[in-house]
């Protein structure tokens, strides 16, 4: 039981139908789909942080939402603490999930209601789920959550409005509202990208701390490989709805094997002009996920592509040390 991963995702697929419009319907055009996630599998052991890294539209948020039961997969299985989300009845699924799985969104300015005090915002989840019977119990739980989110002393913050908080403090309030239900699994979707550099570190350190002290399992979603490298135990690089490389953070960063990961690594700005390096700048932008390229979906932009790349779809290859990448050049 203890060796069982906190989260197990198997062959996840999520398609969104593209609206055809009236003309499309009348002319019986075939239904097209956005392939938001197209066959993704991974495990996260309890207490580990997995970073999902990739460009806009690569399917990171959709993957996160599926693991929380907030959107239903088209195909595939998701097991949270051994329970298959699809096997649970709708009501029971919700109940099980809300106790243990939470999400933090990107924008602390939008996630908070300007007319709610910190106490109201953080206690709301308790009320929604009827998890505190008395006011004293509510205050106790909110205080503990604020404390865990690093808002100390909590009493100073209870009656403040968002306008009276700094950006970092607002994001801490958002995190406290996620913590108040004592989750064991957390999805943090770009939690620092809207924050100034000076306060990003504080939130990243807080997330690390939550893992260390509360053993919370996390998916950290970002397009910034540098912050992923800092926070994550394992990194999964996504491209057009698939994982193209996954492995221990150090291994993926020290020895990226997929051409896309290599390019991504080379363009991460490094804060030292003495370490300027040749950037592998890919041409064009990510193709749309409706009409996917044949073969390897990265081949139209890949600097290393060989003729077979446009025909054969690469599978994740084992590279040892729990490291896998999906590229035809790795197969021999």
């Amino acid at each position: 039981m203890t060796n069982e991963p906190m989260l197990k995702v198997e062959n996840l697929r999520k398609l969104y139908p593209v609206s055809k419009g009236i003309i499309g319907t009348l002319t019986r055009q075939p239904q097209l789909y956005v392939h938001a996630i197209d066959g993704v599998s991974f495990d996260i052991p309890r207490g580990e942080i997995l970073a999902l890294v990739g460009e806009s539209g690569s399917g990171k948020t959709t993957t996160g939402l599926c693991t929380l039961g907030l959107t239903e997969p088209t195909e595939g299985n998701i097991h949270l603490e051994g329970e298959n989300l699809a096997d649970l009845s709708r009501a029971r699924q919700q109940k099980a999930l809300r106790r243990k799985a939470q999400i933090i969104f990107q924008d602390p300015y939008e996630s908070l209601n300007p007319r709610q005090t910190v106490f109201q915002a953080v206690s709301e989840p308790l009320e929604v789920h009827h998890l505190a019977s008395t006011r004293a119990e509510k205050i106790e739980k909110v205080t503990a959550a604020l404390e865990a989110a690093g808002l100390k002393p909590p009493a100073d913050f209870l009656h403040r409005y968002p306008q009276q908080l700094s950006g970092g403090q607002r994001q801490r309030v958002v995190i406290a509202s996620a913590l108040v239900l004592n989750p064991s699994y957390l999805v943090a979707d770009e939690p620092v990208s809207m924050l100034d550099v000076s306060i990003r570190a504080e939130i990243l350190n807080l997330l690390l701390n939550l893992r260390d002290e509360h053993n919370i399992t996390m998916v950290y979603i970002t397009h910034d490989l540098a912050s992923a490298a800092y926070i994550a135990d394992r990194v999964a690089v996504m491209y057009l709805g698939t994982i193209v490389e996954i492995g221990p953070a150090e291994t993926v960063l020290d020895d990226p094997r997929h051409p896309y990961t290599k390019a991504l690594m080379s363009v991460i700005p490094v804060p030292n002009p003495r370490q300027r390096k040749k950037r592998i700048v890919l041409k064009g932008e990510t193709p749309n996920p409706i009409d996917l390229p044949t073969g390897c979906r990265f081949h139209p932009r890949c600097p290393e592509a060989i003729p077979s790349c446009s025909k054969t779809e690469p599978k994740l290859e084992d590279l040892g040390d729990n490291h896998q990448a999906a590229c035809l050049l790795l197969k021999d």
Partner: peptide, 11 residues
Amino acid sequence: LLAAFPDINAP
């Protein structure tokens, strides 16, 4: 500021 900025070369 520099101490607060993640560096992929020193993750």
